[in-house]
C-alpha cells in the first residue's frame, strides 16, 4: 500500500533495494535515465516500474494518531 513494489511486475527483478538511492539521486536533480543505467536497471519493464512509482505512504502516515504503547 503506497510503497515501492519489491520486484518488477514483468520480469521479477528485485527493485525495492535500489529505490532509496534512485529516489534521492533523482531528487538531487540527476537525470533518471542515467541513474537507472548506473543502478544496472536495463530492461524497459523494470525502468517503467521505477519511473512510475509514486509512494503515498508518507501522506498517510501524517494522519496516524500518536498512541504510545504502554
Amino acid at each position: 500500500m503506497g510503497m515501492v513494489p519489491i520486484r518488477c511486475f514483468s520480469c521479477g527483478k528485485l527493485l525495492a533495494d535500489k529505490w532509496n538511492l534512485f529516489k534521492s539521486r533523482v531528487a538531487n536533480g540527476e537525470d533518471p535515465a542515467k541513474v537507472l543505467d548506473d543502478l544496472g536497471i536495463k530492461r524497459y519493464c523494470c525502468r517503467t516500474v521505477m519511473l512510475s512509482t509514486v509512494e503515498f505512504i508518507d501522506d498517510v502516515i501524517k494522519y496516524a494518531i500518536y498512541r504510545r504503547r504502554e
Partner: peptide
C-alpha cells in the same frame, strides 16, 4: 533475504 535494504513497511510513531 538476499539484500538487507528492501523496504517492507513504514511505521508511524507508536506503530508496531
Amino acid at each position: 533475504p538476499v539484500n538487507p535494504d528492501i523496504p517492507i513497511a513504514k511505521l508511524a510513531p507508536g506503530q508496531r
